[in-house]
Simulated scan of single mutants.
Amino acid sequence: MKHAWEAWQRARQRWWVRWGVDLAVAALLFMGVMAWQTRHLPGSGTPAPDFQLRTLTGEQVRLSELRGKPVVLAFWAPWCGVCKAESSTLSALRGMVGERAHVLTVAVAYEDEADVRRFVREQGADYPVLLGNDALSRSFQVDRFPTTFILSSEGRIEQATVGYTTRLGLLWRLWRAS
């Protein structure tokens, strides 16, 4: 009986080692892919390019006037399927952070404003949507969607991510920027 118990303990230890190695390799691959996807984006600590854009409701928003709170700034396109999936995540994040941070999105790469309005209506987006342009995309070096920046309360880029990001992922990034 004692021999069987010891054999089981050794096998169990080897299982945890294999599991730990697999987890470490997966984490390294994930981090490598993230680094590759964001390699052309402005780096951490870089001042975010200032802009003034109109919202769908006609208000003017200037990025520099939002200082004092962290900013989640998500660039998207109406034709982007992943952007559609991430839309509910951004709505939920806005509800979770309330007044502690600004959650803004910038629509770019669209044919006309009607495309943006249709996206907002179909996705039930309840976050501010700014109407961006190619010049703004170039200033942030955005060429894939969705691309999300987390800005510090001082207006510096803290993190950037390309592709779908979960609520937990956005909260974690926002927490690190605060």
Score class of each variant (00 low, 15 high):
134 D>S: 14
102 H>V: 08
10 R>Y: 04
84 K>V: 09
107 A>R: 07
42 P>M: 04
171 L>F: 06
91 S>E: 10
150 I>W: 14
44 S>Q: 15
90 L>E: 03
128 P>R: 12
95 G>C: 01
41 L>H: 10
105 T>M: 10
161 T>Y: 11
94 R>V: 00
123 Q>P: 02
48 A>W: 10
1 M>K: 07
121 R>V: 06
128 P>M: 05
170 L>Q: 07
102 H>C: 03
149 F>C: 06
18 R>N: 07
103 V>L: 07
33 V>I: 15
103 V>I: 04
4 A>M: 11
171 L>W: 11
177 A>Y: 02
3 H>F: 07
116 V>K: 02
24 A>Y: 03
147 T>R: 07
78 P>Q: 01
175 W>Q: 13
139 S>R: 15
99 E>H: 12
162 V>W: 12
128 P>F: 08
2 K>T: 11
97 V>S: 03
80 C>L: 05
96 M>A: 15
111 E>N: 11
159 Q>V: 00
89 T>E: 14
147 T>V: 04
5 W>Y: 11
91 S>Q: 11
162 V>C: 09
119 F>S: 01
177 A>W: 04
128 P>T: 14
145 F>H: 13
3 H>A: 15
15 W>V: 05
119 F>L: 02
17 V>H: 05
16 W>R: 12
18 R>P: 00
151 L>I: 11
85 A>M: 14
37 Q>N: 12
98 G>W: 10
108 V>K: 00
82 V>S: 06
120 V>T: 12
36 W>Q: 10
48 A>L: 08
111 E>Y: 03
30 F>Q: 08
4 A>L: 14
65 E>Q: 14
171 L>K: 08
57 T>W: 01
159 Q>E: 14
159 Q>W: 12
29 L>F: 15
41 L>P: 13
59 E>Y: 03
116 V>A: 03
80 C>M: 01
94 R>E: 08
20 G>S: 13
173 R>F: 02
118 R>M: 01
63 L>D: 03
174 L>S: 03
105 T>Q: 07
66 L>N: 01
47 P>Q: 09
48 A>C: 10
122 E>N: 12
171 L>N: 01
86 E>M: 13
85 A>R: 14
155 G>L: 11
60 Q>K: 09
166 T>I: 07
133 N>K: 06
142 V>A: 08
78 P>Y: 05
173 R>V: 00
136 L>G: 03
49 P>I: 06
15 W>N: 01
35 A>K: 12
103 V>G: 06
78 P>A: 05
13 Q>Y: 09
64 S>P: 00
140 F>S: 07
150 I>Y: 11
160 A>H: 04
34 M>C: 09
